[in-house]
């Protein structure tokens, strides 16, 4: 039984991820007084897109076709190393989070190249913004994990979250609060949510991630949408693991609490999107620098103790 638990956890992640976006949309609809789209809308979209015939621009080359495949592979591989409810994934080793961050980089690199492959000025614009914001969000992410590593004394993601206990929150509440805040800002930026990007926008000039995938269609677009849902789960799971440190020992209980926390995070994202306008594009870097400062402060608090 112990051996197949990581497998069940992994299956739960890859099956449930698209539901997060359904939850976010439902929360946003409630705020706006609408009924909203079905909770399972993304599943229907993925099914529909998978069997559509794609259209490729005559400008594109093999990179345009490889981009979605490599992007989705990178995040699927990253999820294998992600702890679930305080339990290690398949791949847990010292420094695994360095590998995870660079896997996200691999996905970004090929998404950006696929966007540039179309020769579209809009997609070039989105690609340019994507690599720009990564320059600020990646150090913030690294230092947030450094603070977590310092607080727990562990070097693997699973080790850190396993060592995190309710007592750690009592002992190092300011540092953990700051790094959770930093992780939430990074989640919003990396998953192109408000206030960094607006997933509902229809104006190419103002988009970041959505504009990079304008030309993708059919199974390629399905891969991209699914990859985005998995990436949202990835960042959400980091926050859920950080704020939910109690490990009761019961796998089912822990798992249920973890999934409940993921729903709360989805609701939080939906609430942020409903009550906030997006930032002006030139202000986004300052928001990300805020996350970087939170991470550095968390690390310094831990060092000072």
């Amino acid at each position: 039984m112990e051996i197949i638990k990581p497998l069940i956890q992994y299956l739960a992640v890859i099956i449930l991820s698209p539901l997060l976006l359904g939850l976010i949309n439902r929360v946003k609809a409630k705020f706006a007084g609408r009924r909203g789209q079905p909770l399972l809308q993304l599943y229907f979209d993925l099914y529909k897109l998978s069997y559509k015939t794609p259209v490729y621009s005559r400008t594109t080359t093999w990179l345009f076709r490889a981009g979605p495949v490599i992007g989705l592979s990178a995040i699927l591989c990253a999820l294998a190393a992600l702890p679930f409810a305080g339990r290690p994934g398949f791949l847990a080793f010292d420094g695994d989070f360095i590998f995870l961050i660079y896997l996200l980089g691999l996905g970004r690199f090929f998404t950006v190249l696929a966007a540039l492959d179309t020769g579209s000025s809009f997609e070039g614009m989105g690609a340019s913004r994507e690599v720009q914001f990564a320059v600020f969000s990646e150090p913030a992410f690294f230092l947030a994990l450094a603070a977590l590593s310092k607080a727990t004394g562990k070097l693997s993601l699973s080790g850190m979250f396993l060592a995190l206990e309710p007592a750690s929150w009592q002992a190092a509440a300011p540092a953990l609060l700051l790094l959770t805040a930093a992780l939430f800002i990074i989640l919003l930026a990396e998953n192109s949510r408000v206030p960094v990007d607006d997933p509902n926008t229809h104006l190419e000039l103002t988009m970041i991630h959505e504009v990079m995938v304008l030309d993708h269609s059919g199974p390629d677009l399905a891969y991209i949408l699914y990859g985005a849902a998995l990436k949202l789960w990835f960042f959400g799971a980091l926050i859920a693991s950080a704020v939910l440190p109690r490990h009761s020992g019961s796998w089912l209980y822990d798992g249920a609490a973890f999934l409940g926390m993921m729903a709360v995070i989805a609701a939080a994202i939906g609430t942020v999107e409903s009550v906030m306008a997006r930032l002006r594009m030139i202000k986004v870097q300052y928001l990300l620098m805020g996350a970087l400062v939170f991470s550095i402060l968390a690390l310094l608090f831990q060092t000072g103790r």
Binding site: G105, L116, G119, V135, P139
Partner: peptide, 21 residues
């Protein structure tokens, strides 16, 4: 980490501007 992200920006720019579009 900042240098890593900058390297990604630089090399996607080089590969994109020269070979793509």
């Amino acid at each position: 980490s900042a240098a890593g992200a900058l390297a990604l920006a630089v090399f996607s720019k080089a590969a994109g501007a020269v070979f793509l579009g």
